[in-house]
């Protein structure tokens, strides 16, 4: 567990260093290696942040697919909200619905809630155990299972593969 946390945080810090410098000279890469090893040993020797992440090739592929699906959803939902804002009589129908998720790990729930928040039209207000309370700008169905089917299923199937 500890090795996994250390290596994931090391990779993240190293990627941030390389992106900020945007050059691959030998000394820059060496300084980055030393600094990120030091920082991950200092600050992430006890953290539990990435211990639920699976590090298999399948999970990596699903991460890429998840990012793709998420970007498509972001653009689609933004176009929908744009239509709603620009039409003259404001066709909104807001309400707060409840969604029950089957994900177990905390990190996966965090990513699910953030994805629901970023796709406009839906907005997580409160998380309690495995229930998410979502403010929806156009309520199509206020039943719990139906709302789960519409809102959370498309992200959940991928997140289940990435996290335990």
């Amino acid at each position: 567990m500890k090795i996994k946390n250390l290596s994931v945080s090391f990779i993240i810090i190293m990627a941030a260093w390389l992106l900020l410098n945007w050059s691959f000279q030998v000394e820059i890469v060496l300084i980055g290696l030393i600094l990120s090893l030091l920082l991950s040993l200092l600050f992430c020797s006890k953290c539990q942040l990435f211990s639920e992440l699976k590090l298999t090739p399948k999970a990596f592929a699903y991460t890429l697919i998840y990012i793709f699906v998420f970007l498509i959803e972001l653009v689609k939902a933004n176009i929908d909200v744009t239509k709603r804002i620009l039409s003259p009589n404001l066709p909104i129908n807001p309400g707060v619905v409840k969604v029950e998720t089957t994900l177990n790990s905390k990190m996966a729930r965090l990513i699910l809630a953030n994805s629901i928040t970023l796709t406009p039209g839906t907005f997580t207000i409160e998380i309690h155990d495995n229930a998410l309370y979502i403010h929806w700008i156009d309520v199509k169905n206020s039943d719990v299972t139906e709302a789960t089917e519409i809102l959370a299923r498309k992200f959940e199937t991928y997140l289940k593969e990435i996290y335990d």
Partner: peptide, 28 residues
Amino acid sequence: NPVSSHILMRAAYVMKIPFTIDTKVDKL
């Protein structure tokens, strides 16, 4: 960005700012 707007919405709910009259359901 979603973290800050989520905590803002939660603050609005804690302040008990009323919904519009169009609001149909409030499961919370």
